[in-house]
Amino acid sequence: MGQEKKKFEKIINIKNKKASYEFEFIDTFKAGLVLKGTEIKSIREGKVSLTEAYCFFRKGELFIKQMHIAPYSMASSYNHEAVRERKLLLSKKELEKLESKFEEKGLSIIPVRIFINDKGLAKLEIALARGKKVHDKRQSIKEKDTKRELARMKF
């Protein structure tokens, strides 16, 4: 018989590359997003920026701020706002765990990557992280350089 055609063939995996350089990840979680209108279509086109985004708690709920989703090009006047607060969907147990750790000094919640799962839903991977010091950043640059050199020597 014929091969089954996948419903969502285009793989969307947008990463926040700056996050791994600036922060040390302690724990990661996968959260759903509450989106409006044409936002999911823009995400499927890959027009999302996570570089300035951060997460915060309000009344026991987790929100993301400064995540830029570009307006959908094919939409008419009913397009969405590019930058707005969006609610993140996590289980109550995960929210309580995150909120208790978030209150510790020096910890923050940052978005690491956004992707589309098998069911076609947009998911956001967030990390509980601690900011790196200058010497830690130098160490990560050294590690990148050694990996690059080893890759060159293999070829």
Results as ranks from 00 to 15, higher is better:
Leu121Cys: 08
Leu62Tyr: 05
Ser49Gln: 04
Ser108Pro: 03
Lys133Ala: 13
Gly37Tyr: 06
Tyr78Arg: 06
Lys101Ile: 10
Lys137Arg: 14
Arg130Met: 15
Phe56Ala: 08
Lys47Tyr: 02
Pro111Met: 04
Glu52Phe: 08
Ala31Cys: 12
Gly37Met: 02
Val34Ile: 09
Leu89Ala: 09
Pro111Thr: 04
Gly106Asp: 07
Lys101Gln: 14
Lys59Val: 08
Val34Gln: 12
Thr28Ser: 14
Gly120Leu: 09
Glu81Ser: 14
Gly60Ser: 11
Thr38Arg: 02
Glu52Arg: 09
Ser140Gln: 07
Tyr72Pro: 00
Gly32Glu: 01
Lys105Glu: 10
His68Thr: 11
Arg84Asn: 05
Leu98Phe: 12
Ile110Ala: 03
Leu35Asn: 00
Lys30Val: 15
Ser100Gly: 05
Lys93Ile: 12
Leu128Ile: 03
Met67Asn: 01
Glu143Met: 04
Asp27Val: 06
Leu128Asn: 05
Glu85Thr: 09
Glu61Asp: 13
Ile109Ser: 08
Val34Leu: 10
Val134Ile: 10
Glu125Asp: 10
Arg113Asn: 12
Lys144Gln: 08
Ser100Ala: 12
Leu128Cys: 09
Leu50Pro: 00
Gly131Glu: 13
Leu33Glu: 02
Arg130Asn: 12
Phe25Val: 09
Gly46Cys: 01
Glu99Tyr: 15
Ile126Asp: 10
Pro71Lys: 15
Glu96Leu: 14
Glu85Gln: 12
Ser73Met: 13
Met67His: 03
Phe56Ile: 11
Pro111Trp: 04
Leu35Pro: 00
Ala75Lys: 08
Gly60Leu: 09
Ala31Asp: 07
Gly60His: 08
His68Gln: 11
Val134Arg: 14
Ala82Leu: 03
Lys142Ala: 08
Ala75Asp: 04
Lys132Cys: 07
Phe29Arg: 10
Leu33Gln: 00
Lys119Glu: 11
Gly120His: 06
Ala53Lys: 00
Glu52Pro: 02
Ile69Cys: 00
Tyr54Arg: 07
Arg130Gln: 14
Arg113Phe: 03
Ala53Gln: 00
Gln139Leu: 05
Asp118His: 10
Val134Gly: 08
Ile126Trp: 09
Glu104Phe: 12
Arg58Thr: 07
Val112Asn: 07
Arg130Pro: 02
Asp118Glu: 14
Leu33Ala: 01
Asn117Arg: 06
Phe29Glu: 06
Glu81Leu: 14
Val34Lys: 10
Ala70Met: 09
Ala75Trp: 06
Val48Met: 00
Met74Leu: 12
Lys133Pro: 09
Arg58Leu: 12
Thr28Gly: 11
Gly37Thr: 01
Leu128Pro: 06
Gly32Lys: 02
Leu124Lys: 01
Gly106Lys: 08
Asp136Met: 13
Ser42Ile: 00
Ala127Glu: 03
His135Ile: 05
Tyr54Pro: 02
Leu35Phe: 02
Lys92His: 14
Lys144Tyr: 09
Leu121Gly: 05
Ile40Pro: 00
Ala70Arg: 11
Arg44Asn: 07
Glu94Lys: 15
Gly37Asp: 04
Ala75Leu: 06
Leu88Asn: 05
